[in-house]
């Protein structure tokens, strides 16, 4: 095999390895999609279903989901590229919107929040993880 052909074979091998790892890194997009989907259930439960018992049930459900997602993440053999920055963006953005939702729904002007407020809040809470998931999927991790 000539030198250029050997170089092509080496390049192809390297690309194959990188692609396999990027595909395996897609677990992180799945993690974020699940977290985003959970917001569409959590926020309506928390905002519309008032009382101590519903709040306790929502919080317990949240704890179970977050624990399950953390376990799922801990079992993965690959940590995707720039995961720290991406995760900080997703969780940081979610924390801000989630905190604002709670303030508006329980303390602020929407003390009796309707379906519209709840729907918008749920979508806004799902947005930060969903946007990062899209970014991860597009970049191939």
């Amino acid at each position: 095999m000539g030198e250029p052909a050997e170089a092509v074979a080496s390049l192809e091998g390297a690309v194959r390895m990188e692609r396999a790892v990027r595909t395996r890194s897609q677990w992180y997009a799945m993690y974020l999609w699940l977290f985003a989907a959970w917001q569409l259930l959590l926020i309506p439960m928390l905002v519309l279903w008032r009382g101590h018992v519903p709040v306790a049930v929502s919080m317990a459900g949240n704890a179970v989901i977050v624990a399950a997602l953390s376990l799922y993440a801990a079992r993965q053999p690959v940590v995707p590229r720039r995961m720290t920055v991406r995760h900080l963006s997703a969780i940081g953005g979610w924390t801000l919107v989630y905190g604002l939702t709670l303030v508006l729904a329980f303390i602020g002007p929407f003390k009796e929040p309707g379906v519209l407020f709840t729907g918008v809040a749920a979508i806004c809470c799902a947005l930060p993880p969903a946007l990062v998931a899209l970014n991860v999927a597009r970049s191939g991790a």
Partner: peptide, 26 residues
């Protein structure tokens, strides 16, 4: 070395990867 190139290529696509995963991949 093709093995070393494969290992480095695999690690270049991630922040880090588990030894067993890289072993099976390569």
């Amino acid at each position: 070395s093709p093995v070393r190139l494969s290992v480095v290529a695999a690690l270049a696509a991630a922040d880090r990867a588990e030894f067993g995963y890289v072993r099976d991949l390569v």
